[in-house]
Design a protein around this nucleic acid. Structure first.
Lengths: 239, 239
DNA sequence: GAGTAACTGTGTCTCGCGGACACTGTTCAT
DNA sequence: ATGAACAGTGTCCGCGAGACACAGTTACTC
């Protein structure tokens, strides 16, 4: 594992490793990552295998190992390739507007590539673009009296929320999808056990869709952050 | 998949399916799930295979299929077995205190069984205990003027936050663990590219540990919810 | 210009995985 | 007593990641 971490870091961050002798490589990390993304977009992350990715490029499975140490690193490259560039800082914009745009863009990324949710669980090394998303939150919160730890924690808070919403959106899925059936099963279960889950049954029985889940949580979080910032920037003397 | 959903629902919720003829089953869903949890606790979710679980019970792999339709269902049972009962409603306690306790208990669950993070990604059918966690949040927020959708969204918000923190905690890991090495690699990377991630580098350079990440985010969320509840329970006439 | 070291892509092999299926042995209802 | 329903086993298949040895290709060095 210790070596694997270094391998991943070198692949995502390192110098492109310029060799001179031998035949020119026909493939490239970019093409391989793109092929992996194509498979994952079409059939999900579970369908991504060395064989399938190689076949899509008209190559043998083993040739991929000339470029990528293993599947873990391939997926890391796929993530880095699929994730968008974070939205531009928007000079002069208020922190709240910046973070709102940030969250919406991130949510759109997850919608475009639902498998990102599967690929970004567990400890791993982030790529440059992924880290840039974190940077944007911390930068947007600079200068309001928050400590470094608090700014980082805010980023985790926001990212966790967007992630949760994306997961929920995936569970609902488009109408007629296999995911929609799971949701229907859940509704049936709750309704049948309404005595054990009275609050849940009541909440689900109310009309009105919850398509606003992203903005709802976002507004709560930002309200909470605003309250903290107010306290920090207008330090009333402790009574 | 449509049938698979029904299978899972029957296993998690359904009647225990009482047959009468034939030999008594030696195993039980509970024992199988417990064995799976044991493997996952020790070696992670990736190490859970039919073979390993069966071997731990001194049985053949195929005998498990007499009890469980497939690995998906096994993992669903493991989740339901590993997750704690949500904390008791605490009669008369304020919603804020209830939700705080809720979040802390949930975080403790993730700490005890880190593989729960891996097992609870993607669309799936929740078990009774898992659903009870959701019920507690919605119930705690009953009667403050929030709509059903808002109460549900609040639950997703809270769960997402706890999840994010648990994931972060796992990425840090205990000292000397393989995960800690990943974190060290991240620190090195940020420091080396401080020009591209100035805010991040500055935030990480500040002293003070961020062990308070769970409570920090929790306080922000609850502050935000409190503000909304205030607005709803003291409805100032619209100007 | 010849030799050789470095490199690319391939074919073959192993091991572990999930799961299908046929089979033996056991138990209970009739 | 008999036969249906059920429990556990053994064997088989396809697919997955990856190790390894190999042949073909290229560029540096003498």
């Amino acid at each position: 594992m210790g070596e694997a971490a270094n391998d991943t870091v070198r692949l995502l961050w390192g110098p492109p490793a310029k060799p001179t002798r031998g035949p020119k490589p026909t493939l490239s990390l970019e093409r391989i990552a793109a092929a992996g993304v194509e498979v994952a977009d079409a059939e999900g992350l579970g369908a991504v295998s060395m064989q399938k990715v190689a076949a899509l490029l008209d190559f043998t499975k083993m040739s991929l190992y000339r470029y990528v140490p293993g599947k873990t690193e391939l997926i890391a490259l796929m993530v880095e390739s699929a994730v968008d560039e974070p939205p531009a800082p928007a000079e002069g914009a208020h922190w709240r507007g910046q973070l709102t745009a940030w969250a919406h863009h991130l949510a759109a990324s997850f919608t475009r590539h639902p498998w990102l949710l599967d690929a970004t669980v567990g400890p791993r090394v982030p790529g440059p673009k992924e880290l840039a998303w974190l940077e944007r939150v911390v930068a947007a919160l600079d200068g309001y009296g928050l400590t470094g730890a608090e700014r980082m924690d805010s980023a985790v808070l926001l990212a966790g929320h967007v992630r949760g919403i994306a997961e929920q959106a995936r569970a609902v899925g488009p109408n007629g999808s296999p995911e929609a059936e799971l949701l229907a099963a859940l509704g049936t279960v709750v309704h049948r056990h309404a005595d054990r889950y009275p609050a849940l049954a009541a909440a689900m029985a109310e009309p009105g869709g919850h398509d606003q889940a992203l903005d709802f949580g976002l507004d709560r979080i930002l309200d909470g952050l605003a309250a903290l910032i107010d306290r920090r920037t207008e330090p009333r003397p402790p009574r």
